[in-house]
Write a protein that binds this DNA or RNA. Structure first.
Length: 859
RNA sequence: GGGGACGUGGCGGAACCGGUAGACGCAGCGGACUUAAAAUCCGCUUUCCGAACAGGAAGUGUGGGUUCGACCCCCACCGUCCCCACCA
């Protein structure tokens, strides 16, 4: 019997796959297409088992679909722009391009060792000029269409690093690298008009049947469509210059308009700025509002602050009432109109503000069961249902009817109109970064913003950028930005901002479909898109996945792609976690430095080097700082890649986190060896012929039942269940040893082994090839079709039916599969055990659930 | 503050459509092999009563409800996790 040697077996089969070209997508195939994709990695340089799990899932799916007869496209590339390369450049003085290229080379080798069925001929990195140049061309199309624009907006500004930060780069109000308090700063930035597609992006979610509800819900909330009324409040006295039309306010609660007791505008509202022009106190207040972050902590602790402008407006539905206009720190300029009316009785925030500044509180919604004469809001606003009162023409209506009536009246009087407002903002895509795709425009003092002519693309990044100083290295490069205007020839300057890296990943899946095409999106894209199954982390639920949906629609409207949605199916996988270990002194220890021993039901850990006790912490996401990262390469040396793949897919459902444990991989390694042992088995001493037929049939049934179960599990992404079923079949095989000649078991075993190799192939492809070859089968198992199951064999011919009396299990009977209710009834009533149990009882009802259970109800 | 998901043995988890709860794996226990250990192999392993592979009771976070029958459906509560968040 030969030992299974992954170190020898695995490289051998990887070479065989490469020679045979089995992993290449076939552009001439007539088979139905299947585009399998996992979110491409950032080339950090090191692969950890989290990557391995993600790509193993995609690989199982790709291999399974291929075996099912699909022409599979399964590509890989690199999301290669971004901050880590700049940090490496700043810290070590290396060139970010060279640093990235080195990382890609290292990670490509590691990914290849995972044995992934990937068409490597399509590989590219987003930092290749061949890629980002085409991205620039796409951007210019969007710009020509009016989908890209520049505007002044409030952004997170890091005063130390001197750059804009994305919201996710602001942690507790501070810059994630500099730790400096983030300022809100007005800057002119590039935006993409994602809000033009807000309705489509929202409504399109309903058609995404194969997306998790959770992600769809998150996108729905993120887009945040709400319907309401926008209306003008006219000034009671002379209007400030430019505000003769009054103050426009947006509300989703027009039913509560009669409860208004003040107006509040955002600190950066144009009216606030107008007021500040003549009032230093107002200006000082506005300046105060601009500091402070947007983080949870900052908002929670931020007091509601207001400044009374002394301006008064007239109530639109009651000209006898006047309302003061305040500037308030809790009003946001970029939602609605940047101005609200305050209705303290029915909005908690307005109530807090009113109580603080002594503003009136008028109840207008009467909760069910309350008396209009005595109902008063104290410290809690009433936001529940009720009937409108104290409200003129709205009195007596319910909330929904009152909203409609208020909108109708405002529209009839020309004061406002019903409006749909979105929480979604346009996508700010400029970054003051040196390692990104340059935005391909030129600023000319005479012509304004001039796009770089297509013939001049790509706008390449210069070499030799200085990353050591904070700020944008492109802006301070001595020559790069100085060009002549393509239109008038005068001296002009390049845009020095680069794109957010989410732009790079918003269309890469389309490039993979035709990666060497001259056009950014080649003709083959329409053949492959949409991606049939996309796999990646839940952290991209709104960011990347929303941007890609937007970009696909924008490109569709340019006639470049033929689909609305980029990803027909989405699966969000869980992380790989690991226990953490630290010394009493607090130092983190890596798993390899720790020995864990079981003591009864508890466990203790020791530092191998010093013998001192170690504290075992919770399983957490693998991170450098806690030193609990495990690299697949370390594991593969001992147990092979196949055991690693099996383990990360078997212990938890794929959408949940899985905890990495040595014992777990050892379990997978045992399975690998047990499988191999069955293929390598020599015939044993003769097994008694009496049991032959029965044993052979039992094995055949188990085999066909397993094909059915594994197929169904793979269709529904239940990899853990699929591996469990394989375990069971292997157990059955072990219980049915290979006999000497002349037994029915010989044929049954041969059938089972040929099936098993194919069922195992998606999970442990190297092992499966070795087994396939050992059987003497033709060709590669990687190219073999998926096994079919025999319906009759997948079902048992006899069922054990539990018999319940009054809902409690009291025995069981055997009945042929599919036996009629009548037949089962006879069997049950003829059973002596059941009869004894029923002594003294009257059976009132006998329920038979076909092939399942029998319940006798007595009474 | 708003929205959502999840609570099953010592652990990860399984259970199709309301029909034998605990598959499979890990850990543990017992045994075989071995001079010994590791590895490997065989068996046991929800809890409680019980000598029992005789029987029985309880049991899927808690309390109710619907049903012949509930991990699954409904109501309330407790707990954990995730997302969003001065969004008018």
């Amino acid at each position: 019997m030969a030992r299974y040697e992954p170190k020898i077996v695995e490289p051998k089969w990887r070479a065989a796959w490469a020679d045979a070209g089995v992993d290449r997508a076939d552009e001439s195939s007539r088979a139905p297409k299947y585009y399998a994709l996992e979110m491409f990695p950032y080339p950090s340089g090191r692969l950890h088992v989290g990557h391995a799990r993600n790509y193993a899932m995609g690989d199982v799916n790709a291999r399974f679909r291929r075996a099912r007869g699909f022409n599979v496209l399964h590509p890989m590339g690199w999301d290669a722009f971004g901050l880590p390369a700049e940090n490496a450049a700043a810290e070590r003085g290396v060139d970010p391009g060279e640093w990235t290229a080195g990382n890609i080379a290292a990670m490509r080798d590691e990914l290849k060792r995972l044995g992934l069925a990937i068409d490597w001929s399509r590989e590219f990195a987003t930092c290749d000029p061949e890629y980002y140049g085409r991205q620039q061309a796409l951007f210019l199309k969007l710009w020509a269409k009016g989908l890209a624009y520049r505007k002044e907006g409030v952004v997170n500004w890091d005063p130390v690093d001197m750059t804009v930060l994305a919201n996710e780069q602001v942690i507790d109000g501070r810059g994630w690298r500099s730790d400096a308090p983030v300022e809100r700063k007005k800057l002119t930035q590039w935006f993409l008009r994602i809000t033009d597609y807000a309705d489509e992006l929202l409504d399109g979610l309903a058609g995404l049947e194969h997306w998790p509800d959770k992600v769809k819900l998150m996108q729905e909330n993120w887009i945040g469509r709400s319907r309401g009324l926008e209306l003008a409040f006219a000034f009671a006295g002379p209007a400030p210059a430019g505000f003769e039309a009054g103050v426009r306010v947006y509300t989703t609660r027009p039913d509560t308009l009669f409860g208004a007791s003040f107006l509040a505008i955002a600190p950066d509202h144009p009216l606030a700025e107008e007021v500040a022009r003549g009032a230093p106190a107002a200006a000082a207040f506005i300046a105060r509002c601009r500091t402070g972050g947007t983080s949870e902590a900052a908002i929670e602790s931020a007091e509601k602050l207001g400044f009374d402008t002394a301006l008064q407006v007239t109530h639109p539905f009651d000209s006898t009432r006047q309302l003061p206009v305040w500037i308030a720190n809790f009003v946001l300029m970029d939602y609605g109109t940047g101005a609200i009316f305050g209705c303290p009785a029915h909005d908690q925030r307005d109530l807090d503000f009113a109580r603080k500044y002594g503003l009136p509180v008028t109840e207008v919604v009467l909760p069910p069961g309350e008396d209009p004469a005595s109902f008063h809001v104290k410290l809690e606003a009433w936001t529940g249902p009720g009937r409108i009162f104290n409200s003129g023409f709205l009195d007596g209506r319910d909330i929904e009817a009152a909203k409609a009536a208020a909108i109708a009246r405002a529209e009839a009087e020309g004061r406002g109109e019903g409006r749909t407002v979105y929480r979604l903002r346009d996508w700010g895509v400029s970054r003051q970064r040196g390692w990104g795709c340059p935005i391909p425009v030129i600023h000319c003092p005479a012509c304004g913003i001039v796009p770089v002519p297509e013939a001049d693309l790509p706008v390449r990044l210069p070499t030799g950028l200085d990353f050591a100083k904070p700020g944008n290295p492109l802006a301070r490069h001595p020559t790069w930005k100085h060009v002549s205007c393509p239109q008038c020839g005068a001296a002009a300057e390049r845009e020095t901002d680069t794109f957010d890296t989410f732009v790079d990943s918003a269309w890469y899946f389309a490039r993979f479909a035709d990666p060497r095409a001259e056009a950014p999106i080649g003709p083959a894209a329409s053949r492959w898109l949409p991606v049939d199954q996309y796999i990646g982390g839940i952290e991209h639920a709104v960011l990347h996945l929303l941007y890609a949906r937007f970009m696909t629609r924008a490109l569709r409207d340019e006639g470049l792609v033929s689909v609305d949605e980029p990803f027909a199916g989405l699966f969000t996988q869980g992380m790989v976690t690991h226990e953490t270990y630290r010394r009493q002194t607090g130092e983190w220890l890596e798993p390899a430095a720790v020995r864990v021993v079981a003591e009864g039901t508890s466990r203790r850990a020791y530092d191998i080097a010093s013998g001192e006790p170690v504290i075992i912490g919770d399983a957490e996401k693998m991170s450098k700082s806690k030193r609990n990262v495990v690299a697949p390469a370390d594991i593969a040396d001992t147990y092979g890649i196949d055991a690693t793949r099996l383990f990360v897919l078997s212990d938890s459902p794929p959408d949940r986190d899985v905890q990495w444990t040595t014992a777990g991989v050892e379990g997978a390694w045992r399975l690998v060896n047990r499988i191999w042992a069955e293929f390598d088995a020599q015939p044993a001493e003769a097994v008694g012929p009496a049991s032959d037929e029965a044993a052979a049939m039992a094995l055949r049934r188990a085999t066909h039942r397993t094909i059915k179960a594994v197929t169904e599990a793979l269709e529904t992404f239940r990899f853990n269940s699929a591996v469990a079923r394989i375990h069971e079949l292997v157990g059955q095989l072990r219980a049915t040893p290979a006999p000497a000649a002349g037994s029915a078991v010989i044929a049954a075993r041969a059938e089972t082994l040929a099936v098993l190799a194919r069922l195992v192939a998606p999970f442990a492809p190297h092992l499966a090839e070795e087994c396939w070859a050992r059987l003497g089968c033709e060709g590669l198992v990687a190219a073999a079709p998926w096994p079919d199951y025999d319906r009759d064999l997948a079902e048992d011919d006899e069922k054990v039916l539990p018999v319940q009396i009054d809902g409690k299990r009291r025995g069981e009977v055997r009945a042929p599969t599919g036996a009629s209710e009548e037949r089962v009834r006879e069997i049950v009533l003829a059973d002596p055990d059941i009869a004894r149990r029923l002594e003294g009882l009257t059976v009132r009802k006998l329920i038979v659930v076909k092939d399942r259970i029998v319940n006798l109800v007595t009474g």
